[in-house]
Each structure stands twice: as C-alpha cells, then as structure tokens.
C-alpha cells in the first residue's frame, strides 16, 4: 500500500489552530485584565477620596478614626500596625527560614531531605484562619505567662505566628537559591582546606544571596498583605505604637472590618478602604518588583 506522505505531513487546519491559540491567549489575558481592573478601581476610588481628604492630612494626622462622628484620616496608625506585625513576622521567618534552607541544602542527607522538605512545605498549606486561632488561643496565653501586661490582642503573637506561616516561603525559595550554587564552588572551597561552616557562610550563602533576598522580599510582601492572622489575633484598634505588646490594627484588618460592615457604597468611609488598599498594593508591588529583578539576575547567572 502506498503511504500518503502528503496527508501525514499536512498541518492542522488554520481555523482550529487559531481557535486554540485564542483560548490560550484569553486565559493568559484574564490575569492581566483582572490586575488592570483592580488598579483602575483602586485609582478611581482613591482619587475620589483624595478630593475630599487632601493627601497631606493622611500624612500629618496621627489618628485613624474615619468611622467616628468627627472622622480623622491619619494613615500612620494603620501603617505602623502593618509594619510592626510584618517586622515581627520577618524576625521569625528570616532566621528560621534561612537556617532551615541551609540545613536542607547543605547539611541534610538525601533521606532526611526527602522527609523534612515536604513537612516544611506542609506549613504553607495550613489555612491562615487556623494560624489566626492558633495565635489567639495558644500563643497569646503562652506569651502572657512570660510577658506581663501583654494584651489579649497583640502584635507580638500575631506577628510571630505569621512568621511561622512564612517560614516555608523563605525556606523553600532560599533552598532553591542555595541548591543553584554550583557544586564546583563548594569543591573549590573544600580543596583550599576551608572548613564546612566557613564554606557555607562565606562561599555558598554569598553566592546565593540575591536568591535569598528575593525569598525574603516575597515573604515580606506576603506578610504585608496577610489578613486573617492579624484580624483575629492583633486586634482592631488603630494605634500609633511600635510596642509589640499592644493591640494594633493593620491596613488589611481595617479593609476587612469595613468591607464586612454596613458602610453604604460611595460614601467617604467606603472610599477609605480603596485608598488604604492602593497604599498596600503599592507597597507589595515594589517588593515584588525588586524580588522579581533579583530572581531574574540569578537566572542570568546560571546561564553563563
């Protein structure tokens, strides 16, 4: 039987190929359109808000009480609350995460690695709500035993539990960065008679530092945007304080609080959440962009 080579080689019909391409590109566009829409809504509402409340008042006032009879719109209390919980979270997540990454990448044997790595990553799969209750009902009472005067809702407990939540983010991405360091560098160091700890801390980690920095920044941007833990365990009182024992309200908590309430749409109170949201979005955007650049730099390094 004569084979039909022409039929075998025939390209798929132009129509089906184009339809397929369209479906794929629409899916890809969906995320782009969503981001664009969110930015547009945030900007639109924020501009409306700024027409009523000038930008300088946001920065000069020290109280945030938009729902009171005499509203005040100082952004600092929310900003402080967010930065405080984020800072505490990072103080837990960075050392624990990086040390866990060093253990996984440099010290653990193949068998330990296969067991420990999934366990660490399991932490990332726990719903944030559960972390929140863990902070409120377990960590806070425990901390109250040690620290007198710790209020029931406080930044310390919420922040440190958030740090635990972010540990796998830091650990997993840092471990990727450490594993990407060429074996040749470790060998060069060992061959010069350098001990293992010095090799890890002075050869491997410096080479992986852009990747570790990217991991830290991504975790920080997650901490800024985290809502559930701080809403449950840090309280809802906007206070201008950097005392970790105090109750604070973060930007995310405020947005959640107002969104769940019965503020009528279109009012100034309603618009506050968009202004706060835009502020939050810009902070995380900056962190994400820096992290992205760092990661791109590593990928360039890997391909000489």
């Amino acid at each position: 039987m004569k084979r039909d080579l022409a039929a075998e080689l025939r390209r798929p019909s132009a129509l089906s190929e184009r339809a397929g391409k369209l479906v794929f590109s629409l899916c890809a566009a969906a995320s782009l359109v969503t981001t664009g829409g969110i930015v547009a809504v945030l900007l639109h509402q924020t501009i409306g808000f700024l027409q009523a409340v000038p930008f300088t008042r946001l920065l000069t006032d020290t109280h945030w009480t938009p729902l009171f009879a005499e509203p005040r719109f100082g952004l600092w209390p929310l900003l402080c609350g967010t930065l405080l919980t984020t800072g505490i979270a990072m103080m837990v997540a960075i050392p624990c995460g990086v040390l866990a990454a060093i253990y996984l990448s440099e010290l653990a044997g193949e068998r330990q690695r296969r067991i420990v790595k999934p366990l660490v990553e399991l932490l990332a799969g726990i719903p944030t709500l559960i972390y929140g209750y863990f902070a409120l009902s377990l960590v806070t009472p425990a901390l109250q035993q040690i620290i007198p005067g710790l209020s029931g809702f406080n930044a310390l407990s919420a922040g440190s539990v958030m740090g635990l939540m972010l540990l796998p983010v830091v650990a997993s991405l840092s471990e990727d960065a450490l594993s990407a360091v060429p074996t040749g560098l470790r060998e060069a160091s060992h061959a010069l008679g350098v001990r293992r700890t010095a090799t890890i801390f002075r050869v491997v980690i410096p080479s992986a530092s852009p990747g570790i920095a990217a991991a830290v920044l991504l975790a920080a941007s997650r901490a800024l945007g985290a809502t559930m833990i701080v809403a449950i365990a840090a309280g809802q009182q906007p206070q201008l304080t950097l005392d970790p024992r105090d109750s604070v309200e973060t930007m995310t908590t405020y947005i959640a609080q107002v969104s769940l309430g019965d503020i009528p749409t279109g009012t100034l109170e309603y618009r506050t959440i968009f202004a706060v949201g835009l502020c939050l979005f810009m902070m995380t955007l900056v962190l994400n962009v820096i992290a992205h650049r760092l990661r791109r730099r590593i990928h360039r390094q890997e391909r000489p």
Partner: peptide, 20 residues
C-alpha cells in the same frame, strides 16, 4: 581532611573562581 588539603591542593576541570 581540611588541614590536609592545605598541603595537597587541587585544580578542577572547570575553572571555578568565587563569583562574589
């Protein structure tokens, strides 16, 4: 072994200067 390698040095196939 670390001390030994200061007496018995090694050069590898692929040049591996410390990039940092």
């Amino acid at each position: 072994p670390a001390r030994l390698r200061r007496h018995v040095g090694m050069v590898f196939q692929k040049p591996n200067p410390f990039p940092t």
